[in-house]
């Protein structure tokens, strides 16, 4: 039996009211329904273990930041969520599960293609296709066989507006996407990801190659997007995590050290290692 990730489940999650949209409360009495649930996950690249018994819950329609020094496994975990690690030879899950909306995504019956349509991704290096701006956005829908020009036009406009890029590119939709600036390219990649209306957007250090102005635009955008999507962001910037995330998870050497409401992690971390890291004493 193949598990269908298509619209019904999504619409279910999207219409569901978020019981606690404020992440600033000291303790989340009624935690939101977790979008992603990781249970006791071990992950291997060949023989080397990258994740050790990670368990966490990522709430729907909030921004969750993964922080930690390089090589701590945060990107690896992110890439497990849409099974991008499948593309790398020799990777495997040793133990544990990842559930998205209650479905184990590593179950053999899961359709990876459908999963990736539900879990979009924005990469560290902006990577628009060497096609026009329009084609970049319409690509995801065309993959699903959408040919209706009017619908494509509508989605392109909606996505570009959603990524706050519409006004800048509306007059040159059919020129090459490679002509855009770095920040615009990254927002184009976000627009491309939201065009297929996923439930989750994964962002792997989306601002590491951008200048501060472009970075602040993307961060504003993230605040807009979280009204509609569940966002998981990997970042090396403490300030960025502090500014735009609701929850923060700190990883060290493949282990989840601490995960809590962002404000709490940054002001009163429960673990000494977390405090050392965010205050710059190591890492």
């Amino acid at each position: 039996m193949s598990v269908d990730f298509a619209t019904p489940t999504v619409s279910l999650v999207k219409t569901e009211p978020s019981p606690n949209s404020s992440a600033t409360g000291p303790i989340q009495a009624t935690a939101p329904v977790p979008m992603i649930e990781v249970e006791n996950l071990d992950f291997f690249y060949g023989k080397s273990q990258a994740l050790h018994g990670v368990s966490l819950k990522i709430p729907a329609r909030q921004v969750t930041a993964f922080i930690g020094p390089s090589g701590c496994g945060k990107s690896t975990l992110l890439r497990c969520f849409n099974r991008m690690n499948d593309l790398i030879e020799g990777t495997r899950i040793g133990r544990g599960h990842i559930k998205i909306q209650g479905i184990d995504i590593y179950d053999p019956s899961v359709d990876v293609i459908a999963l990736r349509r539900q879990v979009g991704m924005v990469f560290q290096k902006s990577n628009p296709f060497p096609k026009s701006i329009y084609q970049n956005i319409s690509y995801g829908l065309e993959l699903q066989g959408v040919k209706d020009k009017a619908r494509l036009d509508a989605v392109v406009e909606k996505s570009l507006r959603g990524a706050a890029l519409w006004d800048e590119v509306k007059d040159r939709l059919h020129t090459s996407a490679l002509g855009l600036s770095g920040g615009q390219q990254q927002r184009l990649c976000i627009a491309r990801a939201i065009a297929v209306e996923p439930a989750v957007i994964l962002m792997d250090e989306p601002c590491s190659a951008l200048d501060p102005i472009a970075t602040s635009k993307v961060e504003e955008l993230i605040q807009e997007l979280k009204k509609q999507f569940t966002i998981v962001i990997v970042t090396h910037s403490m300030q960025q995590a502090g500014r735009c995330s609701d929850k923060t998870a700190f990883f060290y050497l493949g282990k989840l050290i601490e995960m809590d409401v962002t404000q709490k992690v940054f002001t009163k971390p429960a673990q000494q290692q977390t405090e050392d890291y965010i205050t710059g004493r190591f890492g």
Binding site: L87, K125, K131, Y139, G140
Partner: peptide
């Protein structure tokens, strides 16, 4: 062809064949 084109395509839910025909061969 840079690896990130392929990744971007897969991340949007493209099959291997779609990625090949729509991204890798044109590029």
């Amino acid at each position: 062809v840079p690896k990130h084109f392929k990744e971007a395509s897969f991340a949007l839910g493209a099959t291997r064949f779609q990625t090949l025909v729509r991204v890798l061969i044109p590029a």
